[in-house]
């Protein structure tokens, strides 16, 4: 069982730079054909200051830690037993190349189902840019399977 006293735990905030090359690599890896995500002129024509981060990129920014599996270690979970169950995003000011984004993540809930065979961990991350503007949030639900 994961220690329930971790509910409400806030992780050290992370500040991360949004790199243009990384955004292009993400666009390529996801088969993007919309030039808004790869061509700076197209991005500016679409009203962005620079290449915009696509809708799920906040998730990637949170992985820019020395240990991308930071919560797994704290919770003493076996990575091989973790599945990503749900993911939710809200949006604010667009995230663009050149921004520095500060992410703050907290453990929103931990609970179990099926007599403890599955544990659920809910992590909520809020994010702001270098000007203090809200750039959105994300909530992820992870499932830890405990075969019995």
């Amino acid at each position: 069982m994961i220690d329930r006293s971790l509910i409400g735990h806030r992780f050290e905030p992370l500040s991360v730079d949004v790199e243009k090359g990384r955004l292009r690599a993400f666009a390529k890896a996801t088969g993007a054909t919309d030039q808004t995500y790869t061509d700076e002129n197209a991005a500016r024509a679409a009203g962005y200051a620079a290449l915009p981060a696509p809708p799920t990129f906040l998730f990637s920014l949170d992985l820019e830690r020395d240990d991308p599996f930071y919560f797994i270690d704290l919770m003493k979970i076996d990575l091989a037993r973790v599945l990503h169950a749900e993911q939710h995003f809200t949006y604010g000011t667009p995230i663009c190349a050149g921004d520095t984004i500060t992410l703050t993540t907290a453990v929103e809930d931990i609970y179990d189902k099926k007599a403890g065979a599955m544990e659920f961990v809910i992590l909520k991350t809020s994010a702001a840019n270098q000007n203090g503007q809200d750039v959105g949030s994300m909530t992820r639900t992870l499932v830890v399977r405990h075969p019995q």
Binding site: P55, E86, P94
Partner: peptide, 28 residues
């Protein structure tokens, strides 16, 4: 799972500009 969600993101931004998206969620 996030690759599939990125594809769904492309579905959305293929229909509306990304700034029109207020919320986006998936179950895997």
């Amino acid at each position: 799972g996030m690759l599939g969600m990125a594809y769904l993101g492309r579905l959305l931004t293929g229909w509306v500009p990304q700034t029109a998206i207020r919320e986006f969620s998936t179950r895997f």
